[in-house]
Design a binder for these strands. Structure first.
Lengths: 243, 243
DNA sequence: GCAAAAGTGTTCCGTTTACACCCATGG
DNA sequence: CCATGGGTGTAAACGGAACACTTTTGC
């Protein structure tokens, strides 16, 4: 259950709401990404009052004194989306003196890759909205959050080519076209279907489910799932997806 | 001029020395790397008293309230090495609850690539030592600094293959073998000389200085320098050094 | 039959890899 | 004359890019 002031960019909090058991100068902000019909989307929240009123921002919170940074990020993502299993990685710390107008706050940004179908956004009350945005058409954003998103998109591009993280955005069983769409959305390129298929197949990352799509208005595609064992090997040994 | 408690891992400070104009829960720690005779070395400091006595640690400091994170990292590196121009990039924030035994501190790690011949380490007094260590034989380290160094080495491996940062470790004029040694040291592999030469040459990153080495006990090598214009293009467009 | 996506085949061409080999210099 | 590193050549294997083509399905 989302409570107001609980999953928004922490800087949006009014000072008087700052809890006692958190670090005063540090927050986490989360880049929550999911695929939606071939488009890469990011989850943003809108606050209706305070110095950031009527602008969208990342979903973040304070870090408790007895909580690891990553745990704080995990807590906030779970609270906002209901998802418990997702890929979570640190992007970077953002700490310019003037990034927040009222006082000095350093935020550590994490990006989370979630499966859209597992998400259930629960609204606490009407003090804010939470919604998905296509990364290609973002609204106006508070503070340095635009910079953070752009930085994360660059990082994702970089990362998706060297670690098989794209799979974290897919349902358990997926088609090769769905996978291709993820690469196309993140890298912002158009890929050749036959070549993409062969390339992915040769990596031995996929297990054929021996099942087909159902009720599609075209030839049904084979469903695959991801081989987690191979994933671990590739992560250590190196993975290369150049296009 | 280095003053005691001024360039060491800030957590080594005794509480009573914490200045007033800094954030209390945030520090920067620097991974200062340089090449020394074909070996990759990192600069560490040793504190002689306090809870971290007689162990080596990274060179860090507190972040002033009116200072960007990156500025703090730059200030500390310059103070420790005398170098003013160097490659500086953020690695990540490290913020486990128990990383520092006495209280909660989040540190933001930066890595700096400096040219060994530009470094002049000035000792403040005898409360600490500062020295270079081969990354392949590190001493015992305080707190989570071993984890930070290992993380940075992995990051460097990753980075050196996709951005021409290796050049930041070389003098202005260098030979192809020197460059090759950097790749070998960072990636921890042995590369084929003829193939390495051709690969680098084809990237058009190098300008032939039309000069040769002098006083070497073998055929003198051509000196090259780095074409900064091409660097910028490659950084945007993508750079790929696979081996 | 048509649209839409699945899936296969093939050709071209640049790159990588492995290794043999010659060159220049100081001791 | 030998050790050391500089530097070139080359053939085989591999891998990516481009694109033509066949298959399956629902409407």
């Amino acid at each position: 259950m989302i409570k107001p002031n609980d999953l928004l960019a922490p800087e949006m909090d009014k000072e008087e709401h700052l809890p006692e058991d958190v670090m005063r100068n540090i927050s986490v902000d989360n880049l929550i990404y999911a695929m939606d019909n071939g488009k890469l989307k990011v989850l943003l929240a809108k606050y209706k009052q305070g110095i950031a009123a009527n602008k969208w921002g990342l979903i973040g919170h304070w870090v408790k004194l007895d909580e690891d940074l990553e745990s704080a990020a995990y807590r906030v993502v779970t609270q906002a989306t209901g998802v418990k299993n997702f890929h979570l990685d640190q992007l970077a710390a953002f700490g310019k003196v003037k990034r927040y107008p009222l006082r000095r706050i350093v935020t550590v940004a994490y990006y989370a890759l979630v499966r859209m179908e597992e998400v259930s956004i629960e609204h606490g009350d009407n003090t804010h909205e939470v919604d998905w945005f296509d990364v290609k058409s973002l609204p106006e954003l508070i503070f340095d959050h635009k910079e953070i998103i752009e930085s994360s998109l660059a990082h994702l591009k970089y990362k998706v080519r060297h670690e098989p993280i794209g799979f974290s955005l897919l349902p358990e069983k997926f088609t090769l076209l769905q996978l291709q769409e993820i690469y196309e959305a993140i890298l912002d390129v158009k890929l050749d279907k036959p070549n993409f298929r062969r390339k992915i197949q040769k990596m031995n990352l996929l297990i054929n489910c021996k099942e087909k799509q159902k009720d599609v208005a075209h030839r049904a595609a084979t469903l695959y799932r991801f081989d987690i064992n191979v994933y671990e090997k590739l992560k250590d040994f190196g993975f290369n997806f150049e296009y």
